[in-house]
Simulated assay, not measured.
Amino acid sequence: MRQGTFKWMKSMNKSIILNKIRKDGPISRAQIARETNLTPPTVSSNVKELIEEKIVEESDIGQSQGGRKPTMLVINNQAFSIIGVDAGPENIECIVADLAGNVLKRSKTKLQLPITNQEFIAALKSSIKKVLETDKQVVGIGVAMHGVVEVETGTSLYAPNLGLSNIPIKQQLEQAFGLEVKVENDARAMALGEYWFGDHGELESMLAVNIGSGVGAGLIIEGKLYHGASDIAGEIGHMTIDLHGETCECGNRGCLQTFVTGPAIARKAPGNHLLTAENVFEQAISGNEECAAILKASGRAMGVGLTNLIHIVNPEKIVLGGGVSKAEKFILPAIRETIRTSALTPAASQTTVEVSKLGDDATLIGAITLLLVDIFEVK
């Protein structure tokens, strides 16, 4: 199989069959036909091609239902690999993962700031080259980028934490590596990774919130990532919480991210302005009540923002990720209590809010999922 994309070998029927095997495998050809309403010959011919492409393989013999034991089908997760990139704002992290999301190799490169567009692209290419050596064929590269991303062209329109704009990430990386490249906002990529690999069960809707040096969110509706009319859906960090609050870097007052990000927490630290949000958390754990109060206040502000979002989109579940989410001991109870007392209805107040189980890899796993959607989902 050639490197690049699976688009050239896919059809609607193949997509249906692949996704069925991914979700329900090991599964027989007969069961696929029954549960997808495809004819047995259609299933057989497409499965034959998928086996030849090595993305599907035959597994253990299934149980007999009165006749010959059926041969079961599974995804050959180890046959191909995907490169995932979490691009900035302080480091570029890369992983190589298989089709099941298992990480096979990783690298981390610290960015030298300030940085130009050309230097940032060069750093991306260098980081990817560190993990590209693999004995598996590479499906493509997924890039999770903070800020505003034009998804169709794979362009970073505005990366505020780097002070950059109009970075042609997709075009430059495809030219350099000859692979399919998908570029997405980091919080939306994280949401997709959570939906696929976060062990959340069958959900129709989910909101994933990334709280770190900024605040972003990704919304899944009916299993699909929602982008909005101009690719800015999820920029919840700039939701106004206090009309008379601190001035945000965007120029508005009282944005959510002036309350809950790592830098915002650090600014509120008592006395020593050299403290980081991590230091505030460590001191809170050690019994510093003032530091604990800062984190709880951030949790209440986050709870206000999430209550607003519950009232607008009413997701089944909210998942929190990013560095600040590690302070869940202090922020999570405050978030839940704020939602409980502020939500419009008892049902809304019971919206599940939890911290990601994917941890520091949540965004990277989301980056590889950008390619998995291309392979498995029915368009």
Rank of each mutant, 00 (worst) to 15 (best):
K129I: 09
K136A: 04
Q118R: 15
A97E: 04
I121D: 03
T109L: 09
L113C: 02
K136N: 05
K136S: 10
D135C: 02
K105R: 14
T116G: 04
L132A: 13
T116L: 11
T109R: 12
S107C: 12
A123K: 08
P114H: 04
Q118V: 12
A100C: 04
S127A: 15
Q112S: 14
F120R: 04
V143P: 03
K108D: 11
G101D: 08
K125V: 14
K110M: 13
I121E: 07
P114N: 10
A144K: 03
Q118F: 09
D135V: 02
K125S: 11
F120W: 11
T109K: 11
A100N: 15
G142S: 09
K125R: 08
T116H: 06
T134A: 06
L99I: 07
K129L: 13
K108Q: 14
K108S: 15
T116V: 08
V138A: 00
V139G: 00
A144P: 01
I115M: 08
Q118L: 12
K129W: 01
F120L: 12
I141K: 05
V139W: 12
K129H: 09
N117M: 01
P114Q: 08
A144G: 12
I128S: 07
A123L: 06
L132F: 13
T116D: 10
V103G: 04
K105D: 15
A144H: 01
L99Y: 05
L113G: 02
D98Q: 05
V138K: 00
S127N: 09
T109Q: 10
I115A: 07
V143A: 05
K125D: 06
S126V: 02
A144W: 02
K108I: 11
A123V: 06
T109F: 01
G142F: 03
S126F: 04
V139R: 03
A144R: 01
K125F: 00
V143G: 06
L104A: 09
Q137Y: 09
I121R: 04
